[in-house]
Amino acid sequence: MDVAEIISHHILDHDWGLSLGGWRLPITTHSVTIFVVSVLLLVGLVYISRARASRSGRLLTTLAESYITFVRDSLVLPNMGAEGRGFLPYFCTLFLFILSINLAGMIPEMKTATSNISVTAALAICSGGVILYSGLKYHGIIGFLKGFVPSGTPVWLVPLIFPLEIISTIIKVCVLAIRLFANMLSGHMVLLCLLLIIFIVGKMHIAAGAGALLPAMVLEIFMTCLELLVAFLQAYVFTLLTAIFAGSVIHTH
């Protein structure tokens, strides 16, 4: 039994794409997961927005409204101020999208697409775009660039500080991607490793494997609960950090 191969088979992306006249159309497990989640969210949210008449419809609408209020009052307004109201749809989408993909990984036969650096990098680029746009919208190009130089910086230091500030902003966006990717990947690897303990020990002796069954399963259940928490937490952290960075660009000092 090759443990590394089993883990990589369950964690990594699998490509069963098509080749059409020299063009490669990649259809991967992660892209299918993202597609399914996106369609479910689109259909579900459109249904919720229209279902008002029935009692269940009112319940769903209330749930959606409380979700939007939560994002507005605890993520966007405290960090971006009143200027953040225009960005509320983006943050609502971001939180729900990341959360849904994270949770989709907990369903058997589905993969956690956020354990792929390409997916998290794309999300981080979108967030970087929002940060850039919010700075340009409220300060203009010159004001936005001035915001990169801290107040009180001597003039001769400006050519040194300015590129450092730009690179550090880019690094912050990169860290957003790496944090989500690393947390989701490592969580699922731990889940698999705990499960594989049973088989590794069982290969030494069948009785030892039976003995390892109970502790491994208890740990597995604990880690699964922790993964559910991490799924929520990482979606929250990604959205909150995006709001903090966008707010720091809007309210420069």
Binding site: I171, C174, L240, L241
Partner: peptide
């Protein structure tokens, strides 16, 4: 809470800067 989040990012930011 925002400070805590930013502090928790600092280690990773340092690592990314070094790797860059």
């Amino acid at each position: 809470k925002q400070d805590h989040l930013q502090i928790s990012s600092l280690g990773m930011e340092f690592a990314v800067a070094e790797l860059l």
